[in-house]
């Protein structure tokens, strides 16, 4: 479903080249549960951003569901992100002035989905994610775990093909982190492809497939754990 071929991402900082991704090839099948680990600065986030179409490679090609997405226009990229990619972040990135429900509905709002459908879909997720008593609260009235649930609900409301999580538990205590991991795994069991970048081996080792990145290269790939 996802196929990277010899993808490189090079940043130049003060005239010096930093190879954040060095000819990485990677294929991910639908429904896979993949964790990406590695030392700080090894290129994990860069890899995830490329997968999530937030960044474009300097070289190599990227096929997403059979479509080459390396040379799409801004509008096409946005549309693809909207339909196929769900993102969650370490710092949640909820909009503080919007309620939990409004935050969850944001991708639908941007995609121009009518209000009634938005309400229907967000209600289902609010129910399923244990946020039923909090839909009208604003982010600062929610706990960290609840915030990340809202963020996950927002990421999956468009029914994407893949959920990309960059340190989703990095800002949470152990028990709410565990809750978040369970929630994501639950979504994976129902068929959602899941890619998690993490520093926490305990979380990383739960994944069906584990990848280790060092200096922009995949040094270890263990299909099936």
């Amino acid at each position: 479903m996802i196929e990277l071929r010899e993808v490189s991402r090079i940043f130049s900082v003060g005239g010096q080249e930093v190879r954040a991704m060095d000819r990485i090839s990677l294929a991910i099948e639908p429904g896979e549960y993949l964790s990406i680990m590695g030392p700080s600065g090894s290129g994990k986030s860069t890899l995830l951003n490329i997968l999530g179409l937030l960044d474009t490679p300097n070289s190599g090609s990227y096929l997403l569901e059979g479509q080459d997405v390396t040379s799409l226009s801004d509008r096409q990229l946005a549309a693809t992100r909207s339909r196929k990619i769900g993102f969650i972040f370490q710092f949640f990135h909820l909009i503080p002035r919007l309620t939990a429900r409004q935050n969850i509905e944001l991708p639908l709002l941007l995609a121009g989905v009518p209000r009634r459908q938005r309400l229907e879909r967000s209600s289902r997720l609010i129910e399923a994610f244990g946020l039923a008593d909090r839909p009208h609260h604003r982010p600062d009235e929610l706990s960290g775990g609840q915030r990340q649930r809202v963020a996950i609900a927002r990421a999956v409301i468009n029914e994407p093909a893949v959920l990309l999580a960059d340190e989703p538990t990095g800002n949470l205590d152990r028990s709410s982190g565990a809750g978040i991991v369970e929630l994501m795994e639950d979504l994976n069991h129902r068929g959602l492809t899941l890619v998690v970048v993490t520093h926490d081996p305990e979380i990383g080792e739960r994944a069906g497939r584990q990848i280790r990145v060092v200096d922009g290269r995949i040094v270890h790939d263990s299909p099936g754990g």
Binding site: L54, R75, A79, R81, S82
Partner: peptide, 14 residues
Amino acid sequence: EIGLCKALGASQLQ
């Protein structure tokens, strides 16, 4: 917020 909207599928035009 603007970065987020882009990550969630908003185009430049939007």
